[in-house]
């Protein structure tokens, strides 16, 4: 009788070990065959939250990127990242972006062929000289190239009140044909081009200056370099 009991205990222990072992084995097999572990779920939730926050912070306003029109481009035309800047020459925050943030973006992304910058005009109604300055920069480009445009652009953002005298002075400094330049700045069609940029900006939900559409995603304002870096890196990953 005692021997029978011992056998029973051994049998129970054996059965327990086999059943537990089988359960563990099947559990691991099930997980490996497409089951989701807790850490996976956590990661997916975290990814979802990050994606949501990313879309909230940088809404997609132009699928496939914003229209570049025929505006001045800085950098490799085939770069994977396109930064379309909508700016106003009389806006102090645009000047802040141009003098403080843009040089770092140029160094890290534009000069290395990762990004290109397209400059489009968004003259605000309360800046009376913004359209004139935008037209003058277009006239400088017409006589030369995009590089000259950006040289003129940098001079306009150097500071001081904007005026026709200043535009002519800059044209002289850049060795442009002054008579051609003078007739160009009075050309109505150039103002129409500026207006076209403004309307496109409104289409991309630009409400203030500076405003940016980076690979179709909107950033408003002269934010810190880190914000631009984050968005560009994220877009490069994608």
């Amino acid at each position: 009788m005692k021997k029978d009991n011992n056998s029973l205990v051994v049998a129970i222990v054996f059965a327990s070990i086999v059943i537990s072992g089988s359960l563990v084995f099947f559990a691991t097999q099930f997980e490996g065959a497409g089951g989701i572990s807790e850490s996976d779920i956590e990661k997916r939730v975290q990814d979802g939250i990050e994606e949501y926050q990313y879309n909230e912070a940088f809404p997609l306003v132009a699928v496939g990127g914003a229209d570049e029109d025929d505006d001045a481009v800085m950098g490799d035309p085939n770069a994977p990242i396109t930064i379309v800047e909508f700016s106003d020459y009389e806006c102090p925050y645009c000047a802040r972006f141009t003098t403080q943030t843009l040089p770092r973006i140029i160094e890290k992304y534009i000069d290395t062929g990762k990004a290109k910058l397209v400059y489009r005009d968004f003259p605000l109604s309360f800046h009376p000289n913004a359209v004139g300055a935008a037209v003058a920069a277009e006239c400088a480009r017409e006589q030369s190239d995009d590089a000259t445009y950006f040289e003129f652009h940098d001079k306009l953002y150097e500071g001081g009140a904007l005026s026709t005298e200043r535009y002519v002075q800059y044209a002289r400094e850049l060795d442009l044909d002054l008579s051609e330049f003078n007739s160009c700045i009075n050309d109505e069609s150039k103002a129409d081009e500026v207006q076209n940029d403004f309307e496109d900006g409104q289409r991309y939900q630009i409400t203030g200056t500076p405003g940016f559409v980076i690979n179709g995603r909107l950033i408003s304002g002269a934010r810190d370099y880190a914000v631009f870096e984050y968005l560009i890196e994220k877009e490069l990953e994608n």
């Binding site: 605000l124 309360f126 203030g208 200056t209 408003s220 304002g221 002269a222």
Partner: peptide, 14 residues
């Protein structure tokens, strides 16, 4: 109606 500033951008009515 006048310009305001939001996120370092000049925006009318901000």
């Amino acid at each position: 109606k006048f310009p305001g500033e939001i996120n370092f951008a000049c925006t009318p009515g901000a």
